[in-house]
């Protein structure tokens, strides 16, 4: 099965951790269930969780922590 992508619903700044002093939500190789959070997008002074609509294993992240992202931009690749 082809790899699937998780996209950002919003433009903003992408973060992989819930807080600077905490570990990332997901690492490459972690398994992922539908509804799992993979990161945050910050915009308009608030943080929005990006949730997976697919399940599988995280193959790689396509953007770095704190990168600016566009709406619809792929953030991570998931092996189904």
């Amino acid at each position: 099965m082809a790899n699937q992508e998780i996209r950002s619903p919003l433009p903003g700044t992408f973060y992989r951790r819930p807080a600077p002093d905490q570990p990332p939500y997901k690492e490459v190789g972690d398994s992922l269930a539908k509804g799992d959070t993979i990161g945050l997008v910050e915009v308009m002074k608030s943080f929005h969780e990006v949730k997976s609509e697919v399940e599988g294993k995280v193959v790689k992240f396509l953007v770095e922590n704190e990168d600016p992202v566009q709406a619809g931009q792929p953030l991570a690749e998931v092996e189904g």
Binding site: R7, P9, L10, P11, Q70, A71, G72
Partner: peptide, 8 residues
């Protein structure tokens, strides 16, 4: 709605 393409 689809993903935002341009504008805000």
């Amino acid at each position: 709605f689809d993903y935002l393409k341009s504008g805000a």
